[in-house]
Design a protein around this nucleic acid. Structure first.
Lengths: 227, 227
DNA sequence: ACACTTGTAGTCAAAATGACAAAAAGATGT
DNA sequence: ACATCTTTTTGTCATTTTGACTACAAGTGT
């Protein structure tokens, strides 16, 4: 409470998910200073006294990705006594879904090394961050099946196969292509843009757009997105 | 850090759900001392320095219900700057599902008045507790549809109609009786106890028991409980 | 014996699902 | 220009699931 504005025992950690190369990725950073130099960790920071925790999470996210106004949702508070070795710190974790193309990873401060890692193949993480990431993955699996948020990981316009690959990566299953297409189109949540894929060496697929408005309307009428 | 073991800026609040009289209820308590005397609130308390947050939640739950080893899950951390008027306190909320018959409400300390209220008709709550309760209700709606936890609100042995009423209360819908029965029985998660209802002035219904073991096995094989 | 209440079984058309087959649309190479 | 290859897109079909009912069964209470 002297010069610092930060609350010393409450931190924020963010899992930042993106999807590219047919794999789900998460953004990790390597500490360049202090005792934990060289260790990989989730992006994080402390909550300030005059700052709501959601605002703190947004700030942390912005610092590390440059992004604002992104999907960001609280995951869980982790507060085991010894989760942080130096002192008792409870961390409130968030997870965020971003479009890979929106982020330029090299733009971060020089103190950190920042890198995307496939969630199925990433370096060891510091403290309880591995547990946090695992929890986030499970939560993502849950949510993605019952709410149409997968779209936030894709470009605005996408093909049905991209969408399918996304779900296959997250849910760790395979779908039948014609059936997946049928199911999604029947929901009427996708708008045909009329455009087609470009620069592919085969028949170009149609590009679709997710229509949030329609979804909101259907939801009011009792519709629930499922799988 | 002098005489008190409590961390002064991190609290716990619990939503305790139970089901009776065909309605979902939550346990509230009235403060008997201090500035907020006479106001209704969710059961809560502070986290101790040497205590994991989950343990703190269990302790709080036990203090107010006498119950141990109950379904208890973290809901969300609430941390708006001004949520608590006196100072900056972040509260980590939990929700619990208990069997009504397991709890004797009058057993609590004399400083509090403790009472069950239907979630659709309860007094005004202090601070942001109304928001917390609302969030908990929504979360319950979500979870109950995709995981078989509704059973934790019922006696060990229950009739299909009790189960149906429970779901109707939580989800705020009506189901067709024969269809609901068909669906649930097809899941094979209910064991017929052979016993029947007693002391009812009509045909006695069969009593069933939820089989957690079978559920775990099916889940491993990819089964998901749905609605 | 009768009505009354609630539980339980069964019917039936419509919709959804899962497993395919086949046609269509480009791109590429000869 | 043509055949070939790849991926998209459209269809088919048997099976399962759903939703809306009807009918029957088992008890109570009069």
């Amino acid at each position: 409470m002297t010069g610092t504005k930060a609350i010393s025992n409450i931190s924020i950690d963010c899992i930042i998910f993106s999807f590219h190369n047919d794999e789900l990725h998460t953004l990790l950073l390597k500490w360049a200073a202090g005792k934990s130099r060289g260790e990989w960790a989730l992006p994080g920071g402390y909550v300030n006294y005059d700052e709501n925790i959601d605002a703190a999470a947004s700030r942390v996210l912005k610092i590390h990705t440059g992004l604002d106004h992104v999907y960001l949702e609280q995951l869980k508070a982790f507060g085991d006594v010894n989760r942080y070795p130096k002192k008792r710190v409870i961390t409130i974790t968030y997870f965020s879904l971003v479009k890979y193309s929106d982020i330029k990873v090299e733009a971060s401060e020089s103190v950190y090394e920042v890198q995307w890692f496939p969630v199925k193949n990433h370096p060891e993480l510091i403290f309880d961050h591995q547990e946090i990431l695992q929890f986030g993955l499970n939560r993502l699996k849950q949510i993605v099946r019952h709410e149409p948020i997968g779209f936030k990981l894709l470009p605005l316009e996408f093909t049905l196969l991209q969408l399918q690959s996304l779900y296959e990566a997250i849910l760790e299953t395979k779908f039948d292509k014609p059936n997946f297409r049928r199911k999604l189109l029947k929901m009427k949540l996708l708008n045909d843009t009329g455009k087609k894929q470009e620069n592919v060496s085969h028949r170009a697929a149609n590009l679709y757009k997710f229509d949030l408005n329609i979804y909101e309307k259907l939801k009011d009428k009792g519709f629930t997105f499922d799988l």
